[in-house]
Design a protein around this nucleic acid. Structure first.
Lengths: 354, 354
DNA sequence: AAATTTCTGATTTACGTACATCAGAAATTT
DNA sequence: AAATTTCTGATGTACGTAAATCAGAAATTT
C-alpha cells in the first residue's frame, strides 16, 4: 500500500497537522521539524494522492477555448474535442467552456479574450490571429493572472504562456520531402493552395515546403500561392484555373482548408496523376485519400492538442512547471494504407483487426 | 456544481442507502422505487465521481506484463513504458508488475502465465508467442477469472480478451505502398529482412507487403526472406551477403528488429541509394533516418499500447465493455522531417518550436 | 389477523487529503 | 521569572462515494 500522511506523521513523530503544514508550505513549522518531516516523506517515498487532494480541495478551474466559427472541418473537429474534454472535465475539477469568434478577425478575438478575463476564468486557449492588438489583449489577460495558450496557430512567443500545436515549418518540410520523393525524376512545377498568408501557420508551412523544393534535384518550380480563404468554392475555382493553365503540373500542396473544393477540381479535370499532399484528416481529405486523389495527408491530432492545452493551463494556473517534451504535438503522416476507419457516433467500433 | 448521490436521494425522495443500491446494482429495491431513482439520475444528469468512488472502494488491480528479455530495443522501450505506467499506477488503484521471459519461448511464457494466475493477479498482458500451448495457458487464466490481453504480437483471436497492437497486415501494406512510391519506375528487386517467420506479427507484415509489391507496376520481385532472429550481427551478415549477391537491389524492407546490423551493412557497402523501410523508432532506426540510410520508419507507440492494455485489463476485470475504437493503435509513419527529437532522461525538453 | 419475508430509511465508518480551530508546549523576548 | 511570541498537537469537518448495520415499514404468505 502507498504511504499516507498518517504514515509520515508516525515516522516523523509529529502530528498530522504538522505534516499538512509541511506538505502545503504553510507557516508555523520550525526548520528542524520541517526537515524531519521531509526526511520521512523522502524515506517513505510518499506521493500525494491527487484524487483525494482534489476531492478535499473542491477547487475548480474555469477554462475557456476560443475557436473560429465557420465550416472549416478541422476547426469543427477541434470544437468537438473541446466538447469531449468538457464532459470529462468535471472529473478533473475543471470547467471547460467554448466560445466562437469569426475566423481571421482580430478585434473579435480581442473582445472574446477581454470578456473571458472579466468573467474571471483561470485560463484561456485560443486559435490566435497574429496581430499586435491580440498580443496586447493576451498581455492584459496574463497581467490579470489568467494563463494563456495559443492553439494550432501561434503568435509572438513572448505574449503567451505556451503554444499547443505542431512545428509548422517542419510540417512544410515534411510535405516537401514527401512530394519530392513521390515525384522522383518526374518533371513539372508544383502549386500551393493556402487559406491566407495572413495566418502564421500557413506562412510557416509554405516556408518549410519552399525550402525543400528549392533543395530537391536542383530546384523544382513552385507556382505563386493560391489563396482560397479556406473556402471550398474558391479553392475549386482557383485549382481548376491553375490545372487548365498548367497542363504539365506535377503536384499540389494544400496547406490550409477548403480541400473539398480541391478534390472536386481534380476530379472534374480528371487529373488523378497529380501528386497531392494536404493537411488534416477530415471528411474530404479522407475521401480523397481513399479514392487516390490525395496521396498523403499530414495531420495534427486535435484531441492531443486540446488535452495538452488543458494540462498546460491547469499547470500554469497552479504555478507549476510544464514538461515541454511531454506536450509536443506530432505531425502524423497518413497515406491510404495506414488510414484508420473513422469512429462511428457511438464510439462502438468496427473491428481493429480480424 | 455536479449533482451528487445526495441530490439524487433528495430528488427521488429516498435515502442514500437506496440510491447506493440502485447505483451499484445491489438487491433490495422494489422495481417502482428503482425506476424513481433511475429517473432522478437521468434528470439530474448524474455521473459518478470515479475518483471519489475509487477512493472509497480502495480496490486495487494487480496486473502483470510479461515481456521478452534480450536486447531488442523496441522491447526495452516497451518495458520502460510499463515501468512508467507502474509509477503512475498507484493513482489509478492499479499495481503493475513486469516479468521477463526468453523471446520466442512458448514453454517459458506458459510458465509465466500460470505463475501469475497462481499469484492471484486481476489481469495479464503478454507479448504472445503463437503456439497452441500458449493458447491453452491463456484459456486456463481466463477460466480462473483473470483478464488477458496480447501485446504487440497476437495469437488466435478466441484465446484472449483483446489485442493491444497494430494491424500488422495494414502495416505491411503501408510499407509496400511507400516503397512502391519511393522507387517509382526504378527497376530492381526488393529484399525483406525479418526476425523469424514463427511470430505472427512478422508473418502478417510480410503478407501485406508482398501483396502490394505484387500489385505495383505489374509486380516487383521480392527476394527470399532473410531471417535475422532480431539479432544485429546476423542481420548485418545476411544483408551484407544479399547486397553483394544483388547489385541491382532497389529496396529493403526490415519488418523486425536487428536494425543496427542492417544500417551497418548498408554503410559498409556504401549503398545509400537503396530504399530502406524499417519498423519502430529506436536508436539505430533514428540514426538511420537522420543519416539518410533509412527512408521511412513505421512505428507503433509503445506508450499507447501499454496504456491501452491497462485500460482494457481494468475494464475486463470489472466486467465493463471495451470501446474498441478508442483502443485502436495507429501505425505512425516517420521520415527524417517529422521525426521529433528524443526526450532526455529527465523529461525536460529541447524546445518544440522557436 | 398474525407471522413472515422483502424492502427501505437512517446512521455510521471509511478512503486520503485539505483546512480550520483551539489549547498547550516550547522558544524567545522583556 | 514573567510575558510574549512562535510552534506543535489534538481534534473535527469536509469532499463524494462505498459499504455495512439495524430498525422499521410495507408487502406477502399462512
Amino acid at each position: 500500500m502507498r504511504p499516507t500522511v498518517h504514515d509520515i506523521a508516525a515516522k516523523a513523530g509529529v502530528s498530522l497537522a504538522t505534516v499538512d503544514r509541511v506538505l502545503n508550505g504553510r507557516p508555523g513549522v520550525r526548520a528542524v521539524t520541517r526537515a524531519r518531516v521531509e526526511d520521512a516523506i523522502e524515506k517513505l517515498g510518499y506521493v500525494r494522492d491527487v484524487a483525494a487532494a482534489n476531492l478535499a480541495k473542491g477547487r475548480v478551474y474555469p477554462l475557456v477555448f476560443i475557436i473560429p466559427e465557420g465550416e472549416n472541418p478541422f476547426m469543427r473537429g477541434l470544437e468537438a474535442e473541446v466538447k469531449l474534454a468538457a464532459t470529462r472535465s468535471s472529473f478533473e475539477r475543471t470547467r471547460i467552456a467554448a466560445v466562437h469568434v469569426p475566423p481571421f478577425d482580430a478585434p473579435a478575438l480581442v473582445q472574446a479574450i477581454d470578456a473571458a478575463v472579466a468573467e474571471g476564468v483561470a485560463g484561456i486557449a485560443a486559435v490566435a490571429v497574429d496581430a499586435p492588438e491580440v498580443a496586447e489583449a493576451i498581455g492584459r489577460a496574463r497581467a490579470a493572472g489568467v494563463a494563456f495558450v495559443t492553439l494550432v496557430s501561434d503568435l509572438a512567443a513572448s505574449a503567451r504562456d505556451h503554444f499547443c500545436g505542431v512545428d509548422n515549418v517542419a510540417a512544410g518540410r515534411t510535405a516537401g520531402s514527401l512530394m519530392a520523393r513521390f515525384l522522383g525524376a518526374r518533371p513539372g512545377a508544383v502549386a500551393v493552395l493556402a487559406g491566407s498568408m495572413l495566418v502564421r501557420d500557413h506562412r510557416e508551412r509554405l516556408e518549410g515546403f519552399a525550402a525543400v523544393m528549392a533543395e530537391a534535384f536542383g530546384g523544382r518550380r513552385v507556382l505563386d500561392v493560391l489563396e482560397g480563404q479556406d473556402e471550398p468554392e474558391r479553392a475549386r475555382a482557383l485549382v481548376g484555373a491553375c490545372l487548365a493553365a498548367h497542363p504539365e503540373l506535377a503536384g499540389i500542396y494544400s496547406l490550409g482548408a477548403g480541400n473539398a473544393g480541391l478534390v472536386a477540381a481534380l476530379e472534374a479535370a480528371g487529373r488523378g496523376d497529380v501528386c497531392v499532399i494536404a493537411h488534416e484528416i477530415t471528411e474530404p481529405t479522407r475521401r480523397g485519400l481513399e479514392h487516390g486523389i490525395i496521396d498523403a495527408v499530414l495531420n495534427q491530432d486535435a484531441g492531443h492538442e486540446v488535452r495538452s492545452a488543458v494540462r498546460v493551463l491547469r499547470a500554469k494556473a497552479d504555478g507549476l512547471p510544464v514538461i515541454a517534451a511531454q506536450e509536443r504535438i506530432r505531425i502524423d503522416i497518413f497515406i491510404k494504407e495506414n488510414l484508420l476507419q473513422p469512429l462511428d457516433e457511438t464510439g462502438t467500433a468496427q473491428a481493429a483487426e480480424a
